[in-house]
Amino acid sequence: MKVLVPVKRVIDYNVKVRVKADQTGVELANVKMSMNPFDEISVEEAIRLKEAGTATEVIAVSLGAQQCQETIRTALAMGADRGIHVLHDGDLEPLAVAKMLKAVVDKEQPELVILGKQAIDDDANQTGQMLAALLGWGQATFASKIEMGAGEAKVTREIDGGLETISLKLPAIVTTDLRLNEPRYASLPNIMKAKKKPIDQFSPADLGVDPAPRLETLKVEEPAKREAGVTVADVAELVSKLRTEAKVI
């Protein structure tokens, strides 16, 4: 069974994001970039399926600028077998990404695609669901446990009220939540080995997809700032302030 794992290059989760002065977006120049944390969880899960003998090949795919190849190399260093890069400079929205991933799926015929539930840059939480729709496959979003069976996958999902388990016919889409696994760090020998693993490159046109955005970003602003608070000396002062000043209890 082939497993496809889409990975996105995003601003590292530890970086304090700054809005550009001209309000066209956020500052990306000289900012540390990393693999979207949820995608690391996807890569880890796919590799574990391979180690368990369930998966035969793990393919990492990334869409975007040339530097996305670094993100693919990270997945290869973790243990993915080969990479696919769809080169495109400029913004990509989830619908266009899902269409291009569908073209890759049509070509590669994986039985399982594991995606992060959301990317920590645009916080859209759409691509997996959209890809499932375009392929006409079942979807298990926000997964905290995946059990592969014959022709089906049983997936536990993190939902607002607790946990829910659903069963999907294969092929299927799974999107990962935080508790699915703890991603490994790539070892130095594996980082060296990853440099020799193949990465195929395509353009959106090769895949027959128009990547033009549907949404126009009119402006990007700083959120409203909170006013500085006060330090209270003890619990008694805290409760008194909450009662008489803030009037919230």
């Binding site: 601003i11 956020v26 920590i120 645009d122 955005p213 949404l215 959120p223």
Partner: peptide, 30 residues
């Protein structure tokens, strides 16, 4: 359709405000 996720404000029938980057920026999209 390109969905607009998790809007926090309505500007007009085509234009909406939504948080990005964990709410460290607010985008107005049309």
């Amino acid at each position: 359709v390109q969905q607009i996720s998790e809007i926090s404000g309505v500007v007009d029938a085509d234009t909406f405000v939504r948080p990005i980057y964990a709410g460290n920026a607010m985008a107005t999209v049309k």
